[in-house]
Design a binder for these strands. Structure first.
Lengths: 156, 156
DNA sequence: CGTAGTGGTAAAGTGACTTGACCATAACGC
DNA sequence: GCGTTATGGTCAAGTCACTTTACCACTACG
């Protein structure tokens, strides 16, 4: 499903699109969705089928390891209650633990379990897999350009 | 692996990240989220504050104009009931109508109202705005490269 | 024309989220 | 020190966006 036929969005059903060509929004969205789908696919392949897209946001780069729940909530732009709910799920499923923060008695720190670390690694592998495919499609030099340009946008 | 020392994600809170540099997944995700946020921001600025991110998926390129609900559901990867729910909302709020399909009496077609068309145009403006900023940051030539590379990935 | 398939909707249930409240600790004023 | 404000986390209750299930209308196919 990685290559799909070209321009699968131009079916007869949209003969007269009021809009012009896709802007950068759509162009970023679709590859990103492809990455996301691949990650979930691989996780389910390997038996982690109690995870869904919502859980994955927690594992999103750079991952929750060592983070304080409230920090994570800010980073992921969800309320701390919503995040706490997710952390509860993930803890119940054995992917992480919430441990007391030695430096702040109010606070906790997220610690990935072995199972949680596997998920993080699998996600990374899935992305690497897609990277390889894209590098093949664009050629390594141009893929490198793409990554550099995105990285620069990102503030690197 | 401790490059990206200038990255805003390397706060003291994550001194020993288990992962390396961001892979293409994160690099795509973050600019895309920036675009998404800008769109919602502009819509709310202009008084369309009864819309949220979920509604926007319906307006996502290439937009719902003329589409059959079930078609849209497939495209957006949601169940047809969930989509129908969203369409109901958007119809109630005056952004679109569901009209009978002349060619298939079972089917409907989505027709944007004037209000709905405004939203589509505003979204497009917001993206264009971001494009301009990025073109300035990267330089027009390199921004063009970025767009072309993404377009090629997309199957263009 | 009968039977399977497709498009759409309604109804009920669920659960991921919200808002609001609360307690414990920390940081800062004096 | 001691009171005040801010921060971190959690619980409880309510909500609503979605799911599942079912169903009807129409179409396609033999």
């Amino acid at each position: 499903m990685s290559r799909s036929s070209s321009s699968r969005f131009t079916k007869q059903a949209y003969p007269e699109q009021a809009f012009g060509p896709p802007l950068i929004g759509a162009l970023l969205r679709r590859p990103w969705e492809a990455v996301q789908r691949r990650m979930l696919e691989r996780l389910h392949d390997r038996g982690f089928d109690d995870l869904d897209a919502a859980h994955l946001t927690v594992f999103q780069y750079p991952g929750p390891q060592g983070a304080k729940p409230s920090e994570l909530a800010t980073r992921l732009r969800v309320s701390k209650q919503a995040l706490n709910y997710l952390l509860g799920e993930l803890e119940r499923l054995g992917y992480l633990e919430r441990r007391p923060d030695p430096d702040d008695l109010r606070s906790k720190r997220v610690a990935l379990t072995k199972r949680g670390t596997s998920v993080a690694m699998l996600m990374r592998e899935a992305v690497t897999e897609v990277e390889r495919e894209w590098a093949e499609q664009l050629g390594p030099r141009r893929f490198g350009q793409l990554r550099d340009l995105l990285h620069e946008l990102d503030g690197g």
